[in-house]
């Protein structure tokens, strides 16, 4: 599905990601945990193409994508979200989803100039799809609200829906529960489980260990840019050095 081999990412002498190799298994939620500064988010950014890899290889669906820019990876179905809220604040919730949808003839300059009649069929089809997602995630009432006015948890959900509009093959989530009110954390977890059950592959960075325990299998532990262990959470809990890494970090 998604494979990384010996991926390095160096910032001016600092080894943020130091030779990481992973295999993301299809149809599962793989967890990526570790102390602050372990390089988890950086690694995720390298996988998504937000940051270039210093060395190593990334293979996605039997194709080497190491040199592809972020937008091309997204178009191929490798889509990420961000740790900090990244909604398009001055666009409505529905528009946030529509922006992400590929396959609108009106999205090119020429298509735009040709006028509404040229692209309206695409637009209506995508609006319908977006509304189905909004309905599923309980956000229909917020359709016409500016995304910037939503709560932290609602913004997270918009970001996940937005990513889903691209029909991703692999979803990379960077702390999808960060800054979310506890009452919505459980809701998001349920959504992620149902997406997994439909066959979506997810790799997520997360801090909340009980969430990781609930959702993720396998779990990969990073510290100081390296992988120090992987497997089911119950097994990892028994490994001394991993617990230490967490406590020390």
């Amino acid at each position: 599905m998604l494979t990384a081999r010996e991926v390095h990412r160096h910032f001016e002498g600092m080894r943020a990601v130091d030779g990481v190799s992973i295999d993301v298994l299809p149809g599962r939620i793989t967890g990526l945990i570790g102390p602050n500064g372990a390089g988890k988010s950086t690694f995720l950014a390298v996988l998504a193409g937000t940051l270039p890899a210093s060395s190593g290889n990334i293979v996605f669906e039997a194709e080497v994508i190491t040199a592809l820019p972020a937008y091309k990876r997204a178009r191929r179905g490798l889509v990420r979200t961000f740790q900090l809220p990244s909604e398009f604040a001055q666009l409505t919730v529905l528009e946030n989803l529509l922006v992400a949808a590929p396959g609108n003839r009106g999205e090119s300059l020429l298509g735009a100039l040709l006028g509404k009649r040229y692209w309206l069929p695409d637009e209506r089809r995508l609006v319908e799809r977006a509304r189905r997602l909004l309905n599923r995630f309980g956000m229909s009432a917020k359709e016409s609200d500016y995304a910037g006015t939503l709560s932290g948890g609602q913004k997270r959900i918009v970001e996940i829906m937005r990513a889903l509009m691209l029909r991703p093959r692999v979803l990379l989530l960077d702390e999808p529960m960060a800054g979310v009110h506890p009452s919505i954390v459980d809701e998001i977890a349920t959504y992620l489980e149902s997406l997994r059950d439909e066959g979506l592959t997810i790799l997520m960075v997360e801090h909340e260990l009980h969430m990781v325990e609930r959702l993720c299998d396998p779990v990969i532990v990073m510290a100081q840019g390296k992988i120090i262990g992987q497997g089911p959470m119950t097994m990892l809990r028994r490994q001394r050095e991993i617990v230490d890494a967490y406590l020390v970090g």
Binding site: F11, E12, T50, P69, A70, Y71
Partner: peptide, 10 residues
């Protein structure tokens, strides 16, 4: 430059 402060986003 120490960090990529000037580099473009994306």
């Amino acid at each position: 430059a120490k960090r990529g402060a000037l580099a473009a986003a994306g």
